[in-house]
């Protein structure tokens, strides 16, 4: 596809930005890169419009009483925290010895549902430093599969590739039938299947309440779990310090076992996920990285 001049310039600037931050990371480490984030993000939030458009649907609902200035500050904090997550990924990708220390107090709960032997659908969302924390799943001694987009060109997003130790297999959502055949087979083997449940790409959805407005969330995960007889675990990560994170289970449920009519059951499941996500953003309001109007999808 032919790119316009502005797209070419934007791509070049993105590339330069990446090079700059990787150089800072190599020479000065994580702390130095964090320092550079402040002026870069301040300028971006002050001059950019796109980021305000992308975050406004969330912040208007999360902080309805905030005025314009407070909302600008919210956006700054949000983008800064996202920048730190990206820096961490780059830092850990470039430095094999770099580690974040994390808590996963619920690991025994997760082991218990894995032991049920029916596979587990693990629901994630675009919040916190989820990719970094997934390293912890290696310790579970079970195969992990992630249904996600895997764009080879944007490999910088996948720090596991840089680090050479991806703790999960990627099932391409753009593959035949959205990768659902492989996901089902994985559950039948008793494996873990990770899915993002906060953004609708395609397929069926349910309208649920999220932060006071109706949002359409995908229901494929609940259908998959109900059909395979698997439990659903809602797992969110949060960055809790410069080198610390926490990984926690926010809900566990069993789609299809309530006796409700199928569609009603899936709406109920989507609402449970939405309620867990609401609790998360109440605790970590600036770790929302779903820069997308999920209420309009």
């Amino acid at each position: 596809m032919k790119q316009t001049v502005s797209q070419q310039i934007k791509k070049k600037l993105e590339w330069l930005g990446h090079c700059f931050f990787y150089t800072v990371l190599v020479l000065g480490g994580q702390r130095a890169a964090y320092c550079f984030l402040y002026p870069v993000i301040f300028t971006y939030v002050l001059c950019g419009r796109k980021i305000h458009r992308a975050t406004a649907p969330y912040f208007r609902r999360r902080f309805p009483s905030h005025n314009r200035l407070a909302l600008r500050l919210d956006v700054f904090k949000n983008v800064l925290s996202f920048g730190k997550v990206l820096v961490d990924r780059g830092w850990m990708g470039l430095n094999p010895k770099a580690e974040l220390s994390g808590r996963f107090d619920d690991s025994e709960k997760l082991r218990a549902v894995i032991r049920e032997g029916r596979g587990v659908v693990v629901l994630l969302a675009h919040v916190g430093n989820w990719q970094t924390c997934l390293v912890r799943l290696k310790a579970l001694n079970v195969e992990v599969h992630a249904l996600m987009e895997f764009d080879q060109e944007r490999v910088s997003k996948h720090f596991f590739e840089l680090r050479g130790e991806r703790p999960f297999n990627i099932i391409d959502v753009h593959g035949f039938l959205g990768g659902m055949i492989e996901a089902t087979a994985a559950l039948q083997k008793g494996d873990l299947v990770l899915m993002m449940a906060d953004r609708l790409h395609q397929g069926r959805s349910a309208s649920v309440d999220f932060l006071g407005s109706r949002a359409n969330l995908p229901i494929a995960a609940y259908h998959l779990a109900a059909t395979a007889g698997s439990p659903v675990v809602v797992l969110f990560a949060a960055k809790t310090g410069r080198k610390n994170y926490s990984l926690a289970i926010w809900d566990i449920f069993y789609p299809g076992r309530s006796g409700r009519e199928k569609n009603e059951e899936f709406v109920h499941c989507a609402q449970r996920f939405s309620s867990a996500l609401k609790k998360y953003v109440e605790q970590y309001p600036y770790q929302w990285y779903n820069f997308f109007d999920i209420w309009a999808q």
């Binding site: 039938l177 055949i181 089902t184 039948q188 397929g203 069926r204 259908h223 059909t227």
Partner: peptide, 23 residues
């Protein structure tokens, strides 16, 4: 659609004891 595929994989396993492993 893809959600019917999920059911079909489970049905083939249930009725014929066969697993369809990948896409």
């Amino acid at each position: 659609d893809s959600l019917d595929a999920v059911e079909l994989v489970v049905l083939i396993n249930k009725h014929y004891g066969l697993q369809i492993k990948d896409m």
